[in-house]
């Protein structure tokens, strides 16, 4: 199963805010294969959610193409588009906002089943809803069937969002910060449930999170992409990115993370940055957007030329002049 299910080909998303343009996503390419898990990580505002919305067709990018099983989604006929929208589902960042508060759990799940003609009669409908609630561990099912979203806990609401995404048997799910809002004790079982969908049903995931430890845990068999101010700065298999990061930004991020292990976290090596300020998307630094903060910065190159994503090893690409050996840093940071 190595055929791509979804490809973002050099996509750019321009927003106009107070009539000033800014690129929330700037020339990013990303391929997700059938059954594969790709994680997007990066700080708040770097464009993760925008990427997710582009991937599931909720936003048409300003430039670039989005291909679903090889077909440009914005040139699809009605039939292909319907198929695509059914195959690709998003679980939104904010489960409160995306669930209709006046519908019960069973109503929330029956609407898409009906709309897509996936059940023939009431009995089938009931069976399918039971099955979905079982899949996401909202059990005993009878207790949840007639509840409203506000009667569910945060973790249960997340499960309901997942169940709703599953109504249409998707083959690709965009999960946007799906476990970030829930407590640690519940997080693991949610992640495990999502992992089961992937392993049992072969669902591919674009898993968006700002939590690197969660990314590592969920996507250990997959890949991680690191974004910085709308650009992809590093992409590779999860062990490559997490254990052998090459981009100085990825290194800084990983080294900044506190660890839930006192000895480990107190003896961890930290990368220090030259500046704490995240640049404004309206006024990005010329050249490498990370250069004003970068400990490896080389004057004359990094502040003039934007680095391309180049391979450093098999399946591992980095956008950094120094990491890819284009120039040599005067003093290698410790």
């Amino acid at each position: 199963m190595t055929a791509p299910i979804l490809e973002l080909d050099n996509v750019t998303q321009i927003f106009r805010v107070h009539n000033r343009p800014m690129a929330a996503v700037d020339g990013v390419s990303l391929t997700v294969n059938e059954g594969e898990t790709v994680c997007l990580v990066g700080e708040s505002g770097c464009g993760k959610t925008t990427m997710g919305k582009i991937a599931c067709g909720l936003r048409q990018p300003t430039y670039g193409r989005v291909l679903f099983r090889g077909q440009d989604i914005w040139k699809m006929d009605k039939k292909a588009w319907t198929e695509y929208r059914q195959a690709v589902q998003i679980i939104h960042q904010d489960p409160y906002a995306s669930l209709n508060p006046v519908q019960t759990v069973s109503q929330i799940l029956s609407a898409p089943l009906q709309r897509h003609g996936l059940v023939k009669n009431r009995a089938q409908m009931r069976d399918r809803i039971y099955e979905l609630l079982l899949t996401v561990d909202l059990t005993p099912v009878e207790d949840f069937y007639d509840k409203f979203p506000h009667q569910l806990s945060g973790g249960q609401r997340q499960r309901l969002s997942v169940a709703r995404a599953l109504t249409v048997n998707p083959s690709f799910i965009v999960a946007d910060e799906s476990v970030s809002m829930v407590d640690v004790s519940i997080r693991v079982s949610l992640l495990r449930m999502l992992g089961n969908l992937r392993d049992r049903l072969g669902v591919a995931f674009l898993f968006i999170t700002h939590d690197l430890a969660i990314a590592k845990y969920f996507a250990w068999q997959g890949r991680i992409g690191v974004m910085y101010v709308g650009r992809m700065v590093e992409m590779g298999s999860t062990p490559q990115v997490v254990n052998h990061p090459e981009h100085p930004y990825t290194r800084a991020l990983l080294s900044a993370v506190p660890e839930a292990d006192p000895e480990l976290t107190r003896h961890k090596e930290r990368v220090s940055l030259r500046s704490q300020d995240i640049p404004s998307l309206f006024n990005l630094p010329i050249g490498c957007a990370f250069h004003p903060r970068c400990p490896l910065f080389v004057e004359g190159t990094c502040d003039r030329v934007e680095p391309a994503l180049l391979p450093v090893e098999d399946g591992h690409t980095v956008a950094c002049h120094v990491a890819t050996g284009q120039v040599v840093a005067r003093e290698r940071a410790a």
């Binding site: 806990s153 004790s185 079982s189 992640l191 993370v257 660890e259 292990d261």
Partner: peptide, 21 residues
């Protein structure tokens, strides 16, 4: 709680969950 939180450093580790709420 402790066993439910992954670390970034090091190899993959299995986590355990606390069932219920």
């Amino acid at each position: 709680l402790i066993h439910a939180v992954p670390t970034v450093t090091g190899a993959y580790e299995e986590l355990t969950s606390i069932e219920g709420s």
